[in-house]
Design a protein around this nucleic acid. Sequence first.
DNA 1: TCTGTTTACGAGATACGTAACTATG
DNA 2: CATAGTTACGTATCTCGTAAACAGA
Lengths: 290, 290
Amino acid sequence: MDPHLLTTFVTVARCGSFSAAATELGYTQSAISQQIAALEADLGLPLLSRRPVEPTPAGRRLLEHAEPLLLRLRAARADVLRAAAAPRHRIGLAVTPLGFTADLADRLARARAAWPLLEVTVVTCGRERVAVLVAEGEADLGLVDGLAAPSDPLRPPDAGPLTTTGVSEEDVVVALPAGHPLAGRAALRLADLADARWLRTPLCPLPRLRALAGDGFPVALEHRGDDVRTLIALVAAGHGLTLLPASALRTPGGAVGVPVSAPRLVHRVELLHGTLPPGPAADLARALTG
Amino acid sequence: MDPHLLTTFVTVARCGSFSAAATELGYTQSAISQQIAALEADLGLPLLSRRPVEPTPAGRRLLEHAEPLLLRLRAARADVLRAAAAPRHRIGLAVTPLGFTADLADRLARARAAWPLLEVTVVTCGRERVAVLVAEGEADLGLVDGLAAPSDPLRPPDAGPLTTTGVSEEDVVVALPAGHPLAGRAALRLADLADARWLRTPLCPLPRLRALAGDGFPVALEHRGDDVRTLIALVAAGHGLTLLPASALRTPGGAVGVPVSAPRLVHRVELLHGTLPPGPAADLARALTG
DNA sequence: TCTGTTTACGAGATACGTAACTATG
DNA sequence: CATAGTTACGTATCTCGTAAACAGA
């Protein structure tokens, strides 16, 4: 169960090929073969079926453990190094598109005005990637958003001991094309829209929606990407529905938002960070949650 | 960050000595020295101050990561092996003393009557150890108890992806000597007892109590061990107070229980297990959760 | 000086690459 | 027959143990 071997195993499983993993990791095919053989000998189990290369049941089980384990290992390393390093004025902020609300942008602006030395880099990416960046220390702070029952915490991926702090909660609206028959309603119940056509987008994960509101919500069109304007344009053109925080729909774009009355849902934003040493990063964390 | 080196580091830190760790791990003192040097070189940081051997700040930080990390590594290995192994009729059940209530003992008896092939081994130990035993597969099922606000889950130690299921909730009582001035009361508020003298015992962790009910609860006497009868005897003799689930005080022993009216607290028992393959272990889990 | 850690060095084990081999589609 | 994984084997590296050097109490 050497992490070195686990890394190789994960890579081979992802690539579906020994040789592809070899070039990716900078080894020979032969080395990969020997590493996998060593891992299988160590556990006494076949982990991959060859030709085609696919994880066996035991291999699938191991994969479920290996990925978070390797992440935690990198996170631990990063955390120790970060704690020992001198406090930096260069702060990395990883955000999900809907996590970085206008309100937070304002707070960030005020913080930068108050501390002119502060240099901030903002990276936009998906929820899991935010957690990984923060855990591995590539970002000092993270902002993730998600749907939740009121005052329920989000469940960030298990990337080690990260602190999460609630930053804001906001109403959720259903985004509809302006001419939609329901667009004039004062409020809607999600159950009434379970048979409508929905957009599959990383900005509003349907599995989460189904967990909170029940089955249904068939997919009309898939959207890959982080851009909210694209999503709103898709809704406005009638390609399907999605849920958004109320504030995201205030910009004009041909789509209108109707509040969700049941179930009680909020769009929640949480700040994510490791143990911060006193310094600019901790100051900024306070400014953003304050 | 080789786990091998991490294990050595954790052992040295615990022993406070290179040579002691060497004998414990079956290496020479020299090998330990080289391993620690390798780890420090890898991270580029001193992790231990020598003479006396004590973790540096960076070392302390690493220790916080290393212990759960190594536990998860062992847990992952155990889980993969367990999933691949044939279902066994020999079930290991790890329980905290107060987690194994009379009700659960009954359910276990009924389960054994229903499945005569079932062989059960029960091990009593502390909360953390239960989690470790289950995570590492030495026990198939665990029962842990703890104080919590009603319907709040307990927080088991992070030993990997374990499933927890609430099994029972029961009222909490303050255990008092029979002649105690408050022994006749119908109910008590914990805040009124924050200045009384309490027993420090693993069966009722005071830090948890303080987290739920506020500061105070000074220690009169320390009790090490798992035995409830000893604890009740200590209470009866007036050495100090403690909290117990109501049912634990129904056996005669010179101590009486007075219900806690505020804050709202329950004694909660949870079943802990990894992903169980269909078989005796899963059957027993169902029988215990009822 | 005595205890306990570090360093030097050699032996054994390990891990990788080359290249020949084998199995499968 | 070609593509892709395995096996054999030589070499470089690593890790540990022995033993000598070194540093605090």
